[in-house]
């Protein structure tokens, strides 16, 4: 099955775990991370994600390759949504499977850090005042340094 999906549709975490596990019993740890649309102030109506078709899949694949090189994963899955999403909606899912939990936790953390600063997505927030592009955070690029 595909490791990487870039899609408009929502995902079901349990279904994705089941598909990734298949009949395998050689993993002892499954970590999932789900990113969702956050609305702290109560003003957000929607968030629209634009992406670069082709490069997005390639870049996510490169990040997944790197995670599989660094940690002994038996499974790895990344789903990233695009289009118009509303507060509380799922944006991104990362699943990592390994024999031991540390590898699975670290690989999932690594995947999210690299995905945030490499995958070509751009978020526009929509409020009653109109649309506003979200600026990249300095802290996201700083987060990569701990993986050097």
């Amino acid at each position: 099955m595909a490791r990487i999906s870039v899609q408009r549709e929502d995902f079901q975490i349990a279904d994705e775990i089941a598909a990734l596990r298949g009949d395998r019993t050689d993993m002892g740890a499954i970590v999932t991370f789900t990113g969702t649309v956050r609305d702290i102030t109560g003003e957000l109506k929607a968030m629209t994600l634009e992406h670069y078709p082709g490069m997005t899949e390639a870049e996510l694949g490169r990040v997944a390759d790197e995670a599989e090189k660094r940690w002994p994963l038996v499974g790895c899955r990344v789903i990233h949504r695009y289009g118009r999403l509303e507060p509380g909606d799922n944006i991104v899912l990362v699943i990592t499977m390994s024999a031991h939990r540390h590898a699975a936790f670290e690989a999932a953390d690594f995947l999210m850090d690299f995905l945030k600063s490499r995958a070509p997505f751009w978020k526009m927030e929509e409020t009653d005042n109109g649309g506003q592009w979200v600026d990249a955070k300095e802290s996201d690029s700083d987060a990569l340094k701990r993986w050097d």
Binding site: M55, I91, K116, P120, W122, K123, A136
Partner: peptide, 25 residues
Amino acid sequence: QTHVNLDHPVTDADEVAFFPPVTGG
């Protein structure tokens, strides 16, 4: 479709994309 720096060479066969820093995840 690969991130590059400003000193990267370009040729007429290339697809070159311009965008602000990415904000996925």
